[in-house]
């Protein structure tokens, strides 16, 4: 069931996920499109997330944004307050992160492995940090050890914060501790994106793709063909998986396996490295006497890719 509407206020709106929006020419969403989008969201009881470009948005657009309850997703340095601040690469990290803020850091593997220590100030002040590996589709078996080591070091920082009485969240470590089921991004099922061209897309990545295929509009309503394939019960690998923090990115699925419901090996392996690091963080917190309300025990697995054990299903 649709619950969220992501509204791109500009063609050059920041990417807060795996896809890249770099190099897109600015094209603001026309006010009448935005108005129809907001009306649709209100009539369907949807939570609205506005995604901003780096610069100012037109005044009429800015005014319309305030006509509905919403979340603002902005690139770091964009004018005005943001609910979620997107940082593209380690060089963009603020010297003094805002207390209690939510950040998204888009980074490639090499930078994360090399500069992970720079995340300490963010974890010390922010309420939440979402790490997005922008090249996860190239995650190799050779990256497993480096990613595990990186996550263990970040887990140490988090454990230190817990000991100091703070409880920062790092998506790839903390989410799995508290989830009880798959928590996918929901693109195509619980979430759709309204683009500046006035049409719905499964997510911003599907809009920015060379073969962009719309799935309805605010006037016609959503029309997602083969909508069942975005649901967990129609994903043969994912529905049996318990790496619940995995974004299960349908865009990456489409890129790597040609099917929106089937992840490539790289996404599965990275998610299972995170799951295992979460398990070790849980043990570390327990040993330190820190109890997380609602935390479930995470079982140790002997595989990193559920595909490898499909014969045992």
């Amino acid at each position: 069931m649709l619950q969220y509407l992501v509204i791109l206020l500009d063609d050059a709106a920041a990417s807060f996920c795996h896809y890249s929006s770099a190099g897109r020419a600015p094209r603001p969403m026309p006010a009448d499109v935005l108005r129809r989008g907001i009306r649709f969201a209100m009539t369907e009881n949807l939570n609205v997330q506005f995604v901003y470009p780096a610069g100012e948005v037109p005044a009429d657009v800015a005014a319309l944004v305030e006509s509905v309850d919403h979340v603002k997703i902005k690139p770091v340095g964009a004018p005005g307050p943001a609910d979620v601040t997107v940082v593209d690469g380690f060089d963009g990290l603020p010297a003094e992160p805002a207390e209690g803020a939510t950040y998204v850091l888009r980074t490639d593997r090499a930078a994360l492995f090399a500069r992970r220590g720079e995340l300490a100030p963010v974890l010390a002040r922010a309420a939440r940090l979402n790490l997005v590996l922008t090249d996860v589709e190239r995650f190799a078996d050779a990256d497993v050890a480096a990613y595990a080591e990186t996550l263990d070091e970040l887990a140490g920082l988090i454990a230190g914060q817990y000991a100091a009485g703070r409880a920062p969240q790092l998506n790839v470590l903390n989410d799995r501790l508290l989830l009880t089921q798959m928590n996918s991004c929901g693109a195509g099922e619980t979430s759709l994106t309204l683009a500046p061209d006035g049409r719905f897309y499964v997510c911003p990545a599907f809009y920015l793709a060379p073969d962009a295929t719309p799935v309805g509009s605010p006037d016609e309503g959503p029309a997602v063909p083969n909508a069942q394939l975005y649901r967990l019960d129609h994903a043969p690998l994912c529905r049996r998986c318990d790496a619940w923090q995995c974004r299960r990115c349908v865009w990456l699925n489409r890129q790597t396996t040609l099917e929106v419901n089937t992840p490539g090996r790289e996404q599965c392996v990275a998610a299972h490295v995170e799951r295992e690091a979460s398990r070790r963080l849980a043990l570390r917190l327990r040993e330190a006497g820190i109890m997380l309300p609602g935390a479930q025990e995470i079982k140790k697995l002997d595989y990193l890719d559920p595909f490898d054990v499909r014969e045992t299903w």
Binding site: P236, L237, L258, G264, R265
Partner: peptide, 15 residues
């Protein structure tokens, strides 16, 4: 490209 085989090798009747 083994990723492109994953859908075929996990496909079942009811899905």
């Amino acid at each position: 490209d083994h990723n492109r085989l994953r859908p075929f090798l996990t496909l079942d009747r009811c899905t």
